[in-house]
Every structure is written in structure tokens, then in C-alpha cells.
Design a protein around this nucleic acid. Structure first.
Lengths: 153, 153
DNA sequence: GCGCGTTCAATTGAATGCAATTCAATCGTA
DNA sequence: TACGATTGAATTGCATTCAATTGAACGCGC
């Protein structure tokens, strides 16, 4: 097949699948007043509260340019608070408010609901997820290697 | 595993993989003066020239709100032209300029280059791509079914 | 103790995505 | 053939995403 054919491209299928999945989340997140990136931040905070912005960025592969406006909106909704770290004043720690913690219960049903919409069983989902995690790591490492080789000959 | 755990979510792995792949394209597209969505439009036009905006939207799962500004930029770069359809004046057809057609040659190497960065062989790429296409269709159909059921009880 | 490179957030600007609306043009039908 | 419904693009507004820059704060080596 022509390698420049749209249908031959892995990247486009990823791009389309990602947007389709995000669109499927929207109606479930709307009652919670969350967008998808806001939901991702809440997922991390429900795991570990009071984390630095940097930690959120590492976890979600997002930088402060993306996270700062997202966190501002969560703060405006009184779901999180921001506070400078006592030890290192460069660090801003994000903490859940009681309302933010309480929202977790109302989100419990979302993963199963989405899993159903995929039409895949749990083992197929887990296998696909692992392939994608491995792919992401490989591509990111290849890009990082390109940078080091390209700029310092 | 806790279903609300970030690492358990298929959607996040898709979201991260899609962004990682798009980021890997950027340095290859930069010499061509294209962004990733602009490249996707060019891929469709290199397949079939002179198509309506609607056709691009169907192919890429994007609406006019996204495509109009992308097409304006391609037009500003003299890679495409816009023209009203003779038969149906609602339709705007997008056509390649000679420069737009010529750019195809300089893009030939990109698919292989990206394929290498994935660390997967061609059959693994094809299989993963097919899984994602199927997943996208399933999720989109489930969302469409939700809409019809939800709004007309 | 002092500089100096590094790190962490925030800011700015460009480019998407997408919902909702608008407007012109077309279509289906009574 | 009028006319209401539908369609195709464009526009507007909101929310990301990312590159690049800024500015404060930290830490290492002299």
C-alpha cells in the first residue's frame, strides 16, 4: 500500500481513536463539571493528594503551560487548592478540597461505562493498553535520542 | 486494580500515545512547513485532489470549525486553492497547487521514518492500526446510539 | 558567601478541536 | 411551485496543547 495513504498510518488511527474516546467521556464527565484533561488531573490527585505540579506533569506528560490553566479552572470550581511548598518555594503543591475528594465517588462508574463502549473484554483492554504504553515509551525515547544527536554533534 | 487508577485507563494510554506520535512527526514536518493536522489534509489531497471540505471532514473526523482555519493556512502558504462547486454552490472544493503537489515528494520518507521510531515491524504496526480503527468505529457507534436513545425517549 | 547553571511555575502566542450558531443554497413535498 | 427542513461552510467562543520566554528559588563549586 502507498505509505502516504492515510489509512496506512498508525499515527492517524491513534489520533482518531484518542479523539473518539475523549468524545465518549464528555457526556459522562459533563454531570461532574469536568473536561477530560481536568478529569485526568483529578485521577492523579485521587491516587496521591498534595502533589507538586511537576508530578502531575510527569504523570500526564503535560507541561506547566498546559497544566496551569487547567488547575486554575479546578481551583475556580473549588475542587483543588494551591500552596507553595514549605521546604522548596519553587514548588506549588495541589491538594483536593473536601468537594474534590467527594467527587471521586461520583466518578466510580465511569471506567466501567467506557470499557463497555469499547466492546472489548477486560483482558483485551489491558493488552492493548500495554502495547500503547510500550509504544509511547519507545517513541519518546527515539525522539529524545534524536535531540541529543542532532544538537550536539 | 483500582479502576480509577490512571494506569488502568485505556483512554489515557491512547491520549499519551497519540500526543507522543504527533510530537515525533513535528521535527519531520517542520522542514515542509506543515503542522500535523495540515499534513493530514495534504495526505487526503495527495490521494484525491479537488475534494469538498465535507469530504476532508469525513475522512479525518474533523468538522468545518477545525478545518476552515487549517485550510486558510494551507491557502496562505499557496499549497491549496478553494473554489465553489459549479453544481452545488454550498460546496467548497479544495485543490492542490503545483507547489502542493510537489510537496508530496518531500514527504515520501516520513512514514518509514516514523515506523522506525515505533520500534515495531510492519505487520505489528498494521495489526495495531486495525485494532485502533475497529475501536474507533465501535466507540463512535456506541456514542451515536447513546444520543438517539437519550434525546428521544 | 558568591556566582551561575538548573529547576519549577507562570505567561505569552500560535494552532488546534469542538459545540453552537449563522447564513446561503438545496431538497423534499404538499 | 412555494416553503419548511436539511445541508455545507464559516464564524464565534471556550478549552486545551505546546514552544519559548520569564522570573523566582535552589544548589553546587570555588
Amino acid at each position: 500500500m502507498n505509505p502516504l495513504h492515510l489509512d496506512a498510518q498508525l499515527c492517524f488511527s491513534l489520533y482518531a481513536a484518542s479523539r473518539a474516546m475523549t468524545a465518549a467521556y464528555a457526556p459522562l464527565l459533563e454531570p461532574l463539571g469536568l473536561t477530560y484533561p481536568q478529569y485526568l488531573v483529578m485521577l492523579v490527585l485521587w491516587e496521591t493528594d498534595g502533589v507538586p505540579v511537576k508530578h502531575l506533569g510527569d504523570r500526564l506528560h503535560l507541561d506547566s503551560g498546559t497544566l496551569t490553566p487547567v488547575l486554575k479552572k479546578l481551583e475556580a470550581q473549588r475542587l483543588v487548592t494551591k500552596a507553595r511548598d514549605d521546604v522548596d518555594a519553587r514548588v506549588v503543591r495541589i491538594s483536593l478540597t473536601p468537594a474534590g475528594r467527594g467527587l471521586k465517588r461520583r466518578a466510580q462508574h465511569i471506567p466501567k461505562s467506557l470499557a463497555c463502549q469499547t466492546g472489548l473484554d477486560l483482558s483485551a483492554i489491558a493488552r492493548l493498553r500495554e502495547e500503547l504504553v510500550a509504544l509511547t515509551r519507545t517513541v519518546r525515547e527515539a525522539s529524545a535520542a534524536d535531540l541529543t544527536k542532532g544538537s550536539t554533534p
